[in-house]
Design a protein around this nucleic acid. Sequence first.
DNA 1: AAGTGGTCTAGACCACTAC
DNA 2: TAGTGGTCTAGACCACTTT
Lengths: 256, 256
Amino acid sequence: MPEALDRKGDRALYLQIADQLREQVVTGKLAPGSRLPSEHSLMAAYDASRDTVRKAIGVLKAEGRLDSERGRGVTVRTAPPVERLGSDRLARKHRKAGKGAYLADLEASGRTAEIAVTVSTEKASREVAARLGLKAGERVLVRSRRMLADGQPLQLAVSYLPLELVKGTQIEQHDTGPGGTYARLEEMGHRLDRFEERVTARMPSPDEAKSLDLGPGTPVILVARTAYAVGNRPVELCDTTMAADRYELLYEISAQ
Amino acid sequence: MPEALDRKGDRALYLQIADQLREQVVTGKLAPGSRLPSEHSLMAAYDASRDTVRKAIGVLKAEGRLDSERGRGVTVRTAPPVERLGSDRLARKHRKAGKGAYLADLEASGRTAEIAVTVSTEKASREVAARLGLKAGERVLVRSRRMLADGQPLQLAVSYLPLELVKGTQIEQHDTGPGGTYARLEEMGHRLDRFEERVTARMPSPDEAKSLDLGPGTPVILVARTAYAVGNRPVELCDTTMAADRYELLYEISAQ
DNA sequence: AAGTGGTCTAGACCACTAC
DNA sequence: TAGTGGTCTAGACCACTTT
């Protein structure tokens, strides 16, 4: 089955083996969910040492193509279902009456959704202060959320609001009520005008990987949102960390 | 310097070493650009084998925190400059007269920019046909670009346009002229209405890593854009692949 | 009990960089 | 030339899953 390896050339043995395995994965010859031959078989098939075979497998794990489990073997990773997150999710008219948009959308698609919330206050870091237009050291309300769908974690979100703005309001509670934080802000007279989202991606820290249950080779998408009230005052930040293989963000842009 | 390792516990030695090195990197005790002790020194410091030390370093390379070069040593990766890509880059009024927006923006910031373009025609794949509202097998014009700034590759972009729409126009040329493809389309009567961008991220293929000159542990951001003319007809696709550590996308969203 | 992947060691040779 | 990281091997023990 394996093609011949070039043992004299420049390209490392383990990279050549990785190339051959990758080829079989991307062409579907090794179907998603199927098992690879054991390390022992691959050693024999390629006449290579165990370390060399393991290194080849490690390359494909780092690319997010393979998973391995002790005692079970190495399998081709299956693509998880993808959430499409439209930019209209922030529109006023889409603010769900009953629960937050996250819960409503997911349960509409027939899945169980959970959110774990912790609320606290702290002094604004230099970065948070700058983004909210506060003086460093002013206090902010911090709402941390971990969202799950069907038991699987999908995203982590941390919101920051000027404490002076939200003290004594329902935004300090675990449940911010129908329509969520944004609905409460508007009721208080802070009519929202626009949102700004900055998007990038990177590899997760071990903590993030654990709490999002990320496989190796899975990056995270970072969305840093600022909500501006009419008059251009920033009233909320929301930094979201999501599993890149489980999300697709959709933005509409006018040509004007 | 190194703290004691737990040689009995559950956590693997190489992970404990990785933890200690990571701590030094994130706190800045090991500054960006600085060199780590050699593998030999680390072996002695931690009383571990070379493979174990190398595995610890490998963990941090996969996280995008360290780089290594044969003969030179292991260094803390320095953050590259970040391009901010605003969604207003697509607005009609921002269409630069002289050259494409990419070149104009970069040279305005005092850097040298290059684009390598190849143009061809091919039969639309099932996916491209679906996105462009064509029948599978209809021909499309394919424009592939590789953009560099100061010699460093920043992004790869592939555009697809219905051939029937652009046959015999300047869009088939390497240089599409002032204002680029979108300006030509509008001159031809296809007034643009809106763009849709779908954003996600994943680890690069080896080919992508090579042509974007990506270090290990650096994901790519994928932006799949569809340009719609008035009347909701899709007239162009543009799929962009960019180095995640060199880009930040900025979107403005109305609260309405 | 047998088979799987996970960790760790020791040693060898090589290619590259810096001096 | 000395020192660095890159590759490859061989063998050992362990933790876990499957049968």
